[in-house]
Design a protein around this nucleic acid. Structure first.
Lengths: 210, 210, 210, 210
DNA sequence: GATGAATGAGTATTCATTCAT
DNA sequence: AATGAATGAATACTCATTCAT
């Protein structure tokens, strides 16, 4: 081992940049490992020790990067929700008419949900006992409701949806229908097929009188 | 009562009855206390010791009547679900036309849900980490789906609902909409009013083309 | 069911004799069941509840007949030891010469031990942590030592055993050899055959210079 | 020490050593305390909490070093048996003739046993109810038997012991005599003196016809 | 930043024994 | 005598978090 190599392993000799880079790597490894462990065991049975083992990081190092178990989890959820939101935003809101837009929005949502189903399951779990996570949960649904509500109001303005539809209530109910059906399919494992996605869209459209 | 019968009801035979009475009282007290504690603290933070204290019963007596914490909980849930089912069955399925029936069924469901909202919340919680309770959860929803499906099929036969509605998929989606909206309102506390109930029914009816 | 039969089941009507007889039956059933349970589970894992179940007797009735778990056990051990002693005493101390006598005594002891091996195992177990049972244990060995010692002294008086054999020490050592070999064979399950019994006797005789 | 070596021993590399040292101290303190507590109370009444108190260590630290109560105990027993074996092996097998060798081997064994008598007592206890410890127990005796058997065979080859002595049976019986007499003396507390040791050896030698 | 040993609060469950009928 | 419900003491083990190097 040359002196240079040896020195590179010591702290004093590390340049700030290298130090940061190393920390970033550790942090990333912990996040990846944490997601795996949470998905496999759920929040309650996830152990910090296992996260560290998988990340190939010392036990105590976890707390160098995260305040506590809740903090890693929150970060994973935030990232996931941001990704979900990005997918939804990427979906062109205009296009071949409202029905097609609803269809493609639903498909996009369901696809994104399925990709994150295992973490979603844990999100639902934690939201049942953690006030902080319940906040996040409500906020996420709020965003979802808002999008539907905005769309419905537009359609009403365009005369595509009758006025006796109360936009907010309908938005909440239909977002719930879509969102919870995703849970039912991908988390609880209820069988379903592509035709069901179409049905879902048809129910959605008819429900608001389209 | 003949002499023979009367004589046969001596000591040995009578005592069990008395015993049962006392035991039944203890058991009932534990169940009541358990429901309270579960509702206040959730499943995870519910302590057997607190249940016993509230029931005015010695710690060990809990285990005279229930195998463990899961067992009391399961019994409470079973009772609650049986009650819910009874309410749903009590609802007359005939009457002033399908729309009115749907309306009254939804009202009945929401009313019953609200009355049990706090225990429902815990039910949802436990279903996220207990395989046994997930089973119960799926079974309960299954019953709910079945009822909707049966109704939709009847309406199709009567020509009230178009044939392009796939009864099972629609049943699952709409039961989910109603059921999860109840959770959203009564467990998560989202504001709502009586008009929202009407809207819900309207969305339901329109969705299946009624 | 006739009145007479019915009455016979009640306490008030039972004659003292019948009552005693019944109690005796219950007690006997408990003893039999207790032996089974102790033998199957060892003392520590033996449960009063299981003893009562097997005896077909109510839980609380156990304490009508025995002060506690230790008491039943003590009674079983006492009975077993009395039986063992009886076997040993039945063995004719005279006969075809000392060697033959030693041989038949050993055979008798080993046979009796084997028949009680499972309870013996529990006896050894309890003697390691119960002061009272250790007393019994020491007393039982004392009796065994005494018999050997007496025999050795007789043989010395008859000139069959040299005087440099210290009767007590030899008695303790050889009784230990025989007694613990029985444990090794029948409790620990070390393989052995009939030839080994002969060997044991030969070792015994030679050890004391016979 | 060269510069290279010195540099390579920086932080990361040095720390583990220090850690180990502290951990080793804690571990040793726990082992010492555990032995004390087991000896005073027996296995069943030994409490982890008391072990930790005596070791001056936090409760949880016990589990940093041992999987459970059984694990510390097993380690203590293994160490004790290794020590015993070492003593026996240290005993020169050659010397002033077989009788003197037997005498000194017996003396060595009894001395070593006495030093460990209190832990031996607990070993015997645990062997009666723990399958794992019974394994260890049988293995330990097996080693003891083997040594005697080997010696007897040698003596037979040398013409010092008659051929009608079956080496294995005699080894088992005589090892049992010596080993269990040690238990009787040092654990059960039966009175004895130095003359008894000689007697024991004389019985041993005569038994195999020496 | 990394390491990993130390900390200690927290709790369900068992079961011998008692006791009211 | 029999019954069986009521009692409550007793304890090993987990694991998130801290902290000294």
């Amino acid at each position: 081992m040359s002196i240079t190599e040896s020195v590179s392993v010591t702290m004093a000799a590390m340049t700030p940049v290298k130090r940061q880079a190393r920390a970033e790597r550790t942090r990333a490894a912990l996040l990846t490992a944490a997601r795996e462990v949470f998905e496999e065991r759920g929040f309650l049975d996830a152990k910090i020790s296992e996260i560290c083992e998988r990340a190939g990081v010392a036990y105590g190092s976890f707390y160098t990067h995260f305040a506590d178990k809740d903090a890693v989890f929150a970060e994973l959820i935030d990232a996931m929700l941001a990704g979900l939101l990005a997918v939804m935003r990427a979906e062109p809101l205009n296009g071949d008419g409202p029905t097609a837009r609803i269809a493609s929005a639903n498909r996009a949502y369901l696809r994104a949900y399925r990709k994150n189903a295992r973490l979603m399951a844990v999100f639902e779990q934690v939201a049942t006992f953690s006030p902080a996570m319940r906040e996040t949960y409500l906020r996420a649904w709020g965003v979802f409701y808002d999008r539907q509500e905005r769309a419905i109001r537009e359609w009403q303005r365009a005369g595509l949806v009758p006025d006796d539809v109360e936009p907010r209530t309908a938005a909440v109910a239909l977002a719930t229908m879509i969102g919870r059906t995703a849970y039912t399919w991908y988390v609880l494992g209820r069988p379903h097929d592509d035709g069901d996605v179409e049905q879902l869209t048809r129910l959605y459209c008819r429900a608001i009188g389209m």
